[in-house]
């Protein structure tokens, strides 16, 4: 997608301030076709939007994720939310926060209260957990070896707060939701990690801590794992999460800081 050479014949001469591009990832000095964008820029934007749209609508390949998570030696459970379809999921966030009836029953059968529970959820980008959840867990779990880790729970059509319902059913002290973030034009596969101590019905976002943009080109697995483990330990020691959690390193921001 390089700009074409600027010659007298070019229909879309390069903007003389193209050098400013080094200062920002914003789409500046794009050139013009009359009042509109040059064709190459219409296509570049279209590609980014297409990838984001595909990420929103991609279904989580649960079987493949199950295989990827097999090696951790933890039981693996599968649950889904009360949103039956992707369209219902997008329109009704309240349904995406509730477990469907069969999932509630499945969880009741295997309750063994853990310290820490991981819920791996599709969220708004299933390709994010598909690509990054197993690698992040591989880096994180060794840092938590002294803690009782619950089963790995794969959740579909899930919002962040669905993890609260799972944690309540399994009696977990703390839950981590590893969930696909809303895809942006620059990254369709960012994974978020939301940490909630003593989750309950009606937990607010102010009571969670969040690590964002986890992916190799963003917050890398090793860094994310170190920060996540630190956050989990701080929340367990302090007995709280969210805005009120005092944490030495300025890394895990409350959701709406």
């Amino acid at each position: 997608m390089n700009a074409p050479p600027d010659d007298e014949q070019a229909l879309t001469p390069a903007d003389p301030w193209t050098a400013l591009r080094v200062h920002t990832q914003a789409r500046i000095a794009l050139g013009r076709s009359g009042a509109s964008l040059p064709t190459r820029e219409v296509l570049a934007f279209g590609i980014a939007h297409a990838q984001a749209r595909d990420a929103v609508h991609a279904a989580l390949d649960v079987a493949a994720l199950h295989r990827d998570l097999d090696g951790f030696g933890l039981p693996i459970l599968e649950v889904r939310s009360a949103a039956a379809t992707r369209a219902a999921y997008l329109a009704r966030p309240d349904w995406g926060r509730r477990l469907d009836a069969s999932s509630v029953e499945a969880l009741m059968k295997c309750a063994t209260p853990p310290d820490v529970l991981f819920v791996i959820a599709d969220g708004l980008s299933a390709i994010a957990p598909q690509r990054h959840a197993a690698a992040l867990l591989a880096a994180t779990l060794p840092l938590l070896a002294d803690l009782a880790i619950g089963p790995l729970v794969i959740a579909t059509q899930a919002r962040v707060a669905l993890a609260d319902a799972v944690a309540i059913a399994l009696g977990a002290r703390l839950v981590v939701s590893l969930i696909g973030e809303r895809p942006g034009l620059s990254a369709p596969d960012s994974l978020g990690a939301y940490v909630t101590f003593a989750p309950k019905a009606g937990t607010t976002d102010a009571e969670r801590n969040c690590l964002s943009n986890i992916r190799p080109q963003g917050l890398g697995y090793e860094d994310a794992a170190r920060q996540l483990a630190g956050l989990i330990r701080a929340a367990l020691v302090e007995g709280i999460s969210g805005v009120a959690l005092r944490f030495e390193e300025d890394i895990a921001l409350p959701l709406f800081s």
Partner: peptide, 24 residues
């Protein structure tokens, strides 16, 4: 917004070009 892509807020708005197009 440059190229309609707000790289801070993560949404798509109207671009400088869109303004030119509406004027024209």
């Amino acid at each position: 917004v440059p190229g309609a892509d707000d790289v801070m807020l993560g949404y798509q708005s109207t671009s400088f070009h869109d303004g030119l197009a509406l004027r024209e």
